[in-house]
Every structure is written in C-alpha cells, then in structure tokens.
C-alpha cells in the first residue's frame, strides 16, 4: 500500500469522524443530505459483499466494517434519533434517487469486467459512488450559512478521491498490469464533480470568510 492510498483512506475516515462530530456536537444534521448518506450506504453494501468471502488484509476488513458501521450509524442519527431527525432539511433535500441509481444500474449491466452477479453489483457501486455526492452538493447550494464542519466534510470527501487518483498513478507505474478503466474513469468523474466546490471552499478559506456557494 502506498502513501497516497493510505492518506486517501485516512482522509475518507476523517470525513466520517467530522460528520458524526458535527451531528453529535450540534445535535443537528442541518445541511446534510440524507439522500447522499443513503446512497453511500448502498455503495458500501454493494461493494463489500465479499467482506467475508474475500480476505485481503486485516486492514481492509477492518476499514470495510468501520465504513459500513459508520454509514448505518449516520443513517440512524438522521432518521431515528428523536432530537436530530427533526433538524433534517427534508424540503430542501429533493434530489431523486432514481436519476442516479437507475443510470448507474444500467451502466453496470452494460459495462463491467465480468458477467457475474458479484462483479455487476460491485461495478454498480463504483458508478454510484461517483455521483452519490450530487444530492449533497445541491443541498449545499441551497443552504444559507453552511457551517464549517459541513464544508470540511465535503472537502475531505473530495480530497479522498483526489488522493486515490494519485494512488492509481503510482500503482500504474509500480505494479505490472495494473489497469482498471472502470475504477479510474469513475474516480476521475467523481473528483471533477468536486472542482467547483473546491474553488469556493479554498476561496472562502483564503479570504477568511464563511463558505457560500453561488446559486
């Protein structure tokens, strides 16, 4: 495992910590898209179907369990927690799941590495992860007064994908036959979706003003 991959995973992990921290400390999930959280949970469930059948390392297995556990914990906080669930911006979080899930499912049926149920579901998770942030980005644009932790959360998610791209470049040059078109193209699309956000995030940070996305 190279440093980019490890840094990417740690940043990804940190994004969960920041999100749980924000929700717990403020007892509010204002500005957080439940739809994005549900899509991420679906992504992890579909991707880690091999959790018990395909052992790679203790690190991998542990991280997978942590990602799954945290995702479900966040869903519980946003949907089940008495105090927190009333702070959810239901009226603003209107992105339709089907617009994302259906095209990704169709694409996975058409473009995959092998025609097996496991492989198609895994490919679906790769495609879905690339676009799962969209409801969150739309909600962010609608939310006035984005709090710092929400901004940092989205920034960390984007940074994680950027670091994975560096990891793929590194692996391409250091490991023979390491070519993964589906993962690479999806990952690049995913990172591009963040570019606009990055621009405003860095600008607000440099000018020391509160983050606000133009609508």
């Amino acid at each position: 495992m190279n440093i980019f991959r490890l840094a990417g995973d740690m940043v990804h992990l940190l994004s969960f910590v920041v999100l749980v921290l924000k929700i717990n400390a403020t007892k509010s999930c204002r500005g957080i898209s439940l739809k994005t959280q549900e899509l991420y949970t679906l992504v992890f469930v579909c991707r880690y179907l091999d959790l018990f059948s395909n052992f790679i390392s203790m690190y991998n297995t542990t991280m997978k369990i942590v990602f799954l556990g945290t995702s479900f914990a966040i869903l519980y906080l946003m949907r089940g927690h008495k105090v927190i669930k009333v702070t959810y911006d239901r009226e603003q979080d209107t992105f339709r799941y089907l617009f994302l899930v259906l095209p990704c499912a169709l694409l996975a049926l058409l473009i995959h590495n092998a025609w097996t149920p496991f492989e198609v579901v895994w490919t679906f998770s790769i495609y879905l992860e690339a676009v799962a942030i969209l409801p969150q980005l739309v909600l962010l644009q609608r939310t006035q007064n984005i709090d710092n932790l929400t901004g940092n959360y989205v920034f960390l998610l984007g940074l994680y994908r950027g670091l994975y791209i560096l990891n793929w470049i590194y692996r391409y040059f250091t490991e023979p036959h390491y070519i993964q078109w589906i993962v690479w193209i999806s990952g690049i699309v995913q990172t591009i979706l963040y570019l606009d956000f990055f621009y405003y995030y860095i600008k607000s940070w440099k000018n020391n003003v509160k983050l606000a996305l133009p609508s």
Partner: peptide
Amino acid sequence: EIAAAEKDEL
C-alpha cells in the same frame, strides 16, 4: 478470476 486480487481498494 478478476474479482479477488484487484479488489484490494476500499
């Protein structure tokens, strides 16, 4: 089998 070896990322 493609599945095992190449799915070592999260």
